[in-house]
Structure formats: C-alpha cells, structure tokens
Simulated scan of single mutants.
Amino acid sequence: MSTQFEATVTIDRPIEAVFTYLADGRNDPDFSPRVLKIDKSPDGTTKAGTVFHSTVKDAGMKSQRDFEITELTAPTRIRWREASHNSITVREGGYDLEPNPGGGTRVRLFNVLEGHGMGKLLLPLAGGVSRKDAPDFGERIKVAAEHAI
C-alpha cells in the first residue's frame, strides 16, 4: 500500500542552478524543518548511488533516514529512494525540472510513501498530512532556492 504527494512551483532562477541546488541534498534543511542534520557519502559530486544520511523529526519522534540517489539527468530529472527501514518510507521520490516559458524553472516534487508493519496503519494519516503540506513545502523550496542561488 502506498500514497503520493506532490507540489509544483516556479523558481525564479536558471534551470542549471536550480538543478545543482536541489541535487545537493545537504540543502534540504533550508526548506524542510523536519531535517535536523544531513550528511552525504561519498563526498564529491552527487551522482547515482550517492546516499544522504539524515536525522529527521516527525510527529515529535527522531529517526534516521538514508536516501539514495537513483537517477540524475542534468538539468531536468532527479530521483531517489529511501534505503532506511522505518515504518513509513519513500519508495520513490524526485524532482522534474523544466524551463518556464515566462522565465525561471518549473519544478515538480513528488514522493511516493509506503507503510511497513505498523506504518501501514499510519500511512493514510501521514499521506494526508503530507498532501496538505505539499503546496507550502513547494513554496519553502522556492524561497530557499531563490535565496541561496
């Protein structure tokens, strides 16, 4: 059983710069207040196989999350999957980027959430909360990227 949320925003920056910013998951705390700490391995340029190790806080509880980059197609596509074992994980997530005709970059973010064990019971609630927050999450990405780039 899975559920998905997504958001689309236009970032007033060139596509190459937005791609570079989003491909470096160490920027996630800029727009995701749930991310308390994040590291990357191996060091160097992000590529397929790069893993971002994070400590997050959800519903008052801390957990460790490992996200593996599964695909990078510069400057239009980034894909990941959660490699950690938690009650709710991201089976697949990603960014789709395209130049916006009016300028800037159109970014679509999505995550497919999957429940495991007790997480199967919590998945409808977590999915609903995530879908409700998705527009605001997209706006946080926009603001952070425009500020950082």
Rank of each mutant, 00 (worst) to 15 (best):
P124M: 01
E6H: 07
E146A: 00
H147L: 12
R106G: 06
A148Y: 13
E146N: 00
D43R: 07
F31S: 03
R131C: 08
K47H: 10
S41Y: 09
G119D: 01
R108L: 14
W80D: 02
L125G: 09
I38T: 09
E16P: 03
H53T: 07
E6D: 08
T8R: 15
A74F: 10
P33V: 04
D66M: 00
M1H: 02
R91C: 05
A23E: 13
R77Y: 14
R108K: 15
T73K: 14
S63D: 07
R131A: 10
D12C: 07
N111I: 02
W80H: 03
D39F: 01
S87M: 08
A23C: 14
N27K: 06
I88K: 00
K120T: 10
T105Q: 10
V56G: 00
G127W: 01
R26Q: 15
H147G: 08
M61W: 05
E146R: 00
A23N: 15
V56N: 05
W80V: 02
N86K: 03
R91V: 07
M61R: 11
T10P: 07
P42E: 08
E16V: 07
R26H: 15
I149N: 09
L36H: 09
N100I: 03
N27S: 09
S2N: 15
T89F: 06
R79N: 13
T89N: 11
I78G: 00
W80E: 01
G127H: 02
S2K: 13
D133M: 10
R79W: 12
E71H: 12
V143N: 10
K40W: 08
R13T: 05
T10C: 10
P42Y: 08
G102T: 14
G25Y: 09
P14K: 04
V143E: 13
T70S: 03
L123A: 11
L97D: 03
T45L: 15
R34C: 02
Y21H: 14
I141A: 04
K47C: 08
T55G: 04
G115C: 03
D28V: 11
V107K: 06
H85L: 09
A145Y: 04
V143K: 14
N86W: 01
Y95R: 06
Y21M: 10
S84I: 01
G119R: 00
G117S: 08
L122A: 10
R77N: 10
G103Q: 12
D66Q: 01
T46Q: 06
V112F: 15
G127S: 06
R26S: 14
E146S: 00
L125W: 11
A145S: 12
R26C: 15
I88E: 00
T55D: 09
D136W: 05
M1G: 02
R108N: 14
G103L: 12
A48Y: 14
D30M: 11
D39E: 11
R26G: 13
L121M: 12
